[in-house]
Design a protein around this nucleic acid. Structure first.
Ligand SMILES: [Mn+2]
Ligand SMILES: [Mn+2]
Ligand SMILES: [Zn+2]
Ligand SMILES: [Zn+2]
Lengths: 134, 134
DNA sequence: CAAGTTAATAATAACCATTACTGTTAAAGT
DNA sequence: ACTTTAACAGTAATGGTTATTATTAACTTG
């Protein structure tokens, strides 16, 4: 009863993937849409959402949610994020995995398949700006 | 020029606060609404949202966002969460603050005002269930 | 390579958690 | 009690995302 669907390689998917890979700023679907439209002016936002979800589930990119909005990350390796409350910038943070915590969770019989650390605050630029205005 | 607004103590706010304080399960606004309606049948969902936001900004409860949806936490002390992908349960995790990471961020001139760790996976119950079905 | 098949697309509507608006109610000060 | 106005109930609007559908184009087959 298994119907195998062969996947097609579309220009849309290739361009959207390339846009994310070329982005160093964790863009939203809308931002990716705007950038990809330069290449394919007829591109549809719905396609962008669908392809991004697909790429993420294939493990080729990562989805990161900030303030209830999806952003996309060209990096798929283990790292975390600092989010500036002032300018909204999302920056990568390299952090060693907290083995102590993982062991504790695993002792309860839980299976952890993803760990996410987020740090909120002010980036140096915004911290400085707010300091001088005071 | 300062116009001071005196706050009023309403039954709505008292009941909503009590519902959260009595909840051990990180309920959503909708769930809090359902529970509070037992006490105040005419309660409005909009009021629940507004009061929850107010209570959170007063530091009396905490908001925790999972899958782009707000949940509310009776606890306001430093702790983190495990989210089961199967049953959706949100469980508290006690974890020591990762000083190493914080120092690293602070060295960049950043100011961190909130740290959030989330662990996703399967709780023991769901892990067991999925194992026997296989 | 032309014709046929159907996965993926563009365009658009629907969804749903949350927020904004508006006329009414009631908490607190006098 | 009377007044003031913060907070309320009810409802409409918002916005990011997902679903639907007719059309297009990537791949298969002859
Ligand atoms: Mn990143
Ligand atoms: Mn908690
Ligand atoms: Zn900043
Ligand atoms: Zn579970």
């Amino acid at each position: 009863m298994e119907v195998k669907k062969r996947k097609r390689n579309t220009r849309q998917k290739a361009v959207i993937f390339q846009v994310v890979k070329d982005s160093h700023d964790h863009p939203t679907a809308e931002e990716i849409y705007e950038r990809a439209k330069k290449e394919i002016p007829t591109l549809s936002l719905g396609t962008v959402y669908r392809v991004l979800k697909e790429l993420a589930s294939e493990g080729k990119i990562r989805e990161i949610i900030v303030n209830k909005q999806s952003h996309f990350d060209r990096r798929t390796d283990f790292h975390h994020h600092f989010i500036c409350r002032e300018c909204g910038k999302i920056e990568d943070i390299e952090t060693p995995l907290c083995r102590y915590t993982c062991r504790k969770v695993e002792q309860k019989g839980y299976i952890v398949d993803e760990i996410e650390y987020k740090f909120y605050g002010l980036c140096s630029k915004c911290a400085e700006k707010l300091d001088t205005n005071k």
